[in-house]
């Protein structure tokens, strides 16, 4: 407990100090509220808007989770198929890398035109943002299988599916999780941007409304919610990793 506390208190003090300076600076220099609201104003606004924010946050969480799960699945599926069919990998992997030069976010308006204002274009946006880190990390993990273990499996006469399920996949799990963690934070961003472009609820939609009204304080509240959401999803994945990857990673 004391070691935990030791690692937590320095950043905590830094944050508190930062907020204090912010609060002091705003009142000292008489900064307009629409330019930079004081932390106390933001907290006050968060409390008064709680109900409305809760509704919007729930919509964003739902969108994020569906998109994140779908994106991760697509990423894993792509990694699996490309890994098991080397020809496909050599044909498609360069294209996959190349496709990441297209700013996925910029595709969102296009998707809106093609698929309307429903859930689908938003989901596609999140999937496009999410699948890549998962696919690359998973493929990387799958190809880095320990040579000695692989040699053992082959010498023991293991079939291809045995090698995949019993060796390659578990071996790639830590690597897959590092990709999934990145995807988790990306998925929140993807959801917000999808909501900016076309939605009738969600934190992204709320931000657009408050932007037009120059309600900087409410925008800050929205940003805080987004940060909290990203962090929460990340921690959830880290927890899942701890449960699934119980063995200590090899030091070699």
């Amino acid at each position: 407990m004391s070691t935990y506390f030791k690692s937590v208190w320095p950043p905590l003090v830094a944050v508190i100090l930062f907020i204090a300076i912010w609060q002091g600076a705003v009142s000292l220099f008489h900064i307009e509220k629409w330019m930079l609201p004081a932390p106390s104003d933001i907290a006050h606004e968060a409390a008064s808007q709680a109900e409305r924010l809760g509704m919007h946050a729930a919509a964003t969480i739902q969108l994020t989770l569906i998109g994140f799960v779908a994106g991760t699945m697509v990423g894993l599926l792509i990694a699996m198929v490309l890994h098991l069919i080397p020809f496909l990998k050599s044909a498609l992997y360069p294209l996959l890398i190349l496709s990441q030069n297209i700013p996925t976010i910029a595709l969102a308006p296009l998707l809106l035109i093609w698929f309307g204002f429903g859930l689908l274009p938003k989901l596609i946006t999140i999937i496009l943002v999410c699948f890549f880190p998962v696919a690359v990390a998973a493929m990387d993990g799958l190809t880095r299988t320990d040579a000695a273990m692989m040699n053992y499996m082959r010498m023991a006469g293991a079939k291809r599916h045995h090698i995949f399920w019993k060796l390659e996949l578990p071996h790639a799990l830590p690597s897959i999780f590092s990709g999934v963690k990145i995807a988790a934070t990306y998925s929140v961003m993807g959801a917000i941007i999808a909501e900016w472009i076309g939605a009738d609820k969600g934190i992204g939609y709320y931000m657009m409304l408050q932007k037009s009204a120059y309600r900087t304080d409410r925008l800050f509240v929205a940003i805080m919610i987004i940060v909290a959401l990203s962090l929460l999803l990340f921690l959830l994945i880290a927890l899942l990793e701890k449960l699934l990857v119980r063995w200590r990673p090899q030091k070699r």
């Binding site: 320990d146 000695a148 273990m149 040699n151 053992y152 010498m155 023991a156 019993k166 060796l167 578990p170 071996h171 799990l173 990857v245 119980r246 063995w247 200590r248 990673p249 090899q250």
Partner: peptide
Amino acid sequence: YMPQQPALFPW
């Protein structure tokens, strides 16, 4: 087969 390194699966 018994390999040179134990090659036990760490998981």
